[in-house]
Design a protein around this nucleic acid. Structure first.
Lengths: 234, 234
DNA sequence: TAGATTGTTAATCGATTAACAATC
DNA sequence: TAGATTGTTAATCGATTAACAATC
């Protein structure tokens, strides 16, 4: 029973599935706002976010009662409330570990800065790459990690190393005080309680697509000839 | 009721949550096999994959009965069965659209080729980049997309364009015959029935981490002082 | 007031987990 | 046989959805 009986937000009692959709709503609201829209119905916003309106309203109800019956939601007000709830109004310092192709791409990605994420350090284990400039950041050696995390106040670390280096990097990040990790390395990480890890695994995503693709080609022996289903991932 | 009463696999009746974990088990089995292990218990494999053993056994039961009671699973046999189920034994031709930093990183990513994904075309909308070589592939213009998809048999397309180009690219991919799309662009895609879309959104991942990070810092007013929870994403 | 739309309830669905009978 | 471990059951939990009373 996570939702509260009264109209007040449950602050931390928001279901994970809802938390994962809030950034999607935020993005949709930003786009709608930029197009000049002042008020939006749950139906409109749901369409823009790619969900159904019942789910959207249920999700928003965890934050509070920010809509007006018969009217809809004020775009700017709702956008602000969601941004505050997520914490995007703050500035988050991020360190990237592993400056290969992917690490470089991430360090150049414009979508981070505009959403409150500031990349403040680039770290690599290869000593020959130390000093190499990317934007206005120089690559530092992994041995500097602890100092950099503390000095620059990083609470989020991104791991973009090969799989076999990932656990050691995670250990170092945690020891330095990082409590949130975004892991692109193909490895299962073990971290202490209180540290959040999210995993983005490119070849796993392709493999999931391949699974469904295979079934489109070989109409399943034990299933009636159904039209191949759509599996849109949230 | 997706599991069948008998021991036979339900081929296409595997729950999505299970499908998403099969590649994780596959990777763990490959690593265990390379380390010389011949037989593995559900407990060992579950640990290697970062799940609990009950979930692992339930997941595997959708594929069939590939273990031996009192003994465990034959590593190589189970690895093969999962690979076959996913479709990784086949070769999948992939086209990448949008050769910016991320597209380049993806085109160089070694983890794809070794898992049956062959990148066979790089496409970009910027005419001035056409001909530029990446590995042994030259960038082609987006107008060549249809021809390339047909000639090279692509069934999977990767979108790594800016958000505002993504829907048009998706439309072109679908028109050319692509039925599975991995979307890195920050945009909600609309596709016809029968086309699968999976979305990887880097700033959404960071925002989800930020949400939890914020709560670690401001011990929620309406929650007893609990140790900040771990949210390891599968 | 009449029409529109939210916020919430309750039913349903799917995923997780513990426990254990089956069986190697 | 005794010990180990799978495969399955059933309980529980969390997420989704339709429907509608509340209310602007």
């Amino acid at each position: 029973m996570r939702a509260q009986a009264n109209g007040r937000p449950a602050s931390s009692g928001i279901p994970e599935a809802t938390v994962a959709r809030l950034p999607v709503y935020l993005r949709a609201l930003t786009a709608l706002g930029e197009s000049g829209l002042r008020t939006v119905s749950s139906e409109q916003l749901a369409t823009a976010a790619g969900v159904n309106s019942a789910k959207l309203r249920k999700d928003l109800s965890y934050l509070g009662s920010y809509g007006t019956r018969g009217v809809g939601y004020d775009v700017e007000y709702l956008r602000y409330q969601i941004a505050r709830e997520i914490g995007v109004n703050q500035d988050w310092a991020v360190v990237i570990v592993g400056i290969g192709n992917l690490g470089q791409a991430l360090s150049n990605y414009g979508g981070f800065r505009s959403r409150g994420f500031r990349i403040v350090a680039l770290v690599d284990g290869d000593a020959s790459r130390v000093g190499e400039m990317h934007g206005d950041l120089a690559i530092a050696h992994i041995d500097e990690l602890d100092r950099l995390v503390v000095e620059r106040g990083c609470s989020i670390g991104v791991i973009a190393t090969p799989g076999d280096a990932a656990q050691a990097v995670a250990d170092r990040l945690v020891a330095a005080g990082v409590t949130s990790i975004l892991n692109f390395a193909p490895a299962v990480l073990t971290v202490p309680e209180g540290v959040d890890v999210r995993k983005v695994d490119l070849s796993i995503e392709l493999q999931i697509l391949a699974y469904h693709e295979q079934r489109k080609r070989t109409p399943g022996a034990d299933r009636e000839g159904l039209p191949s289903e759509q599996v849109v991932e949230s």
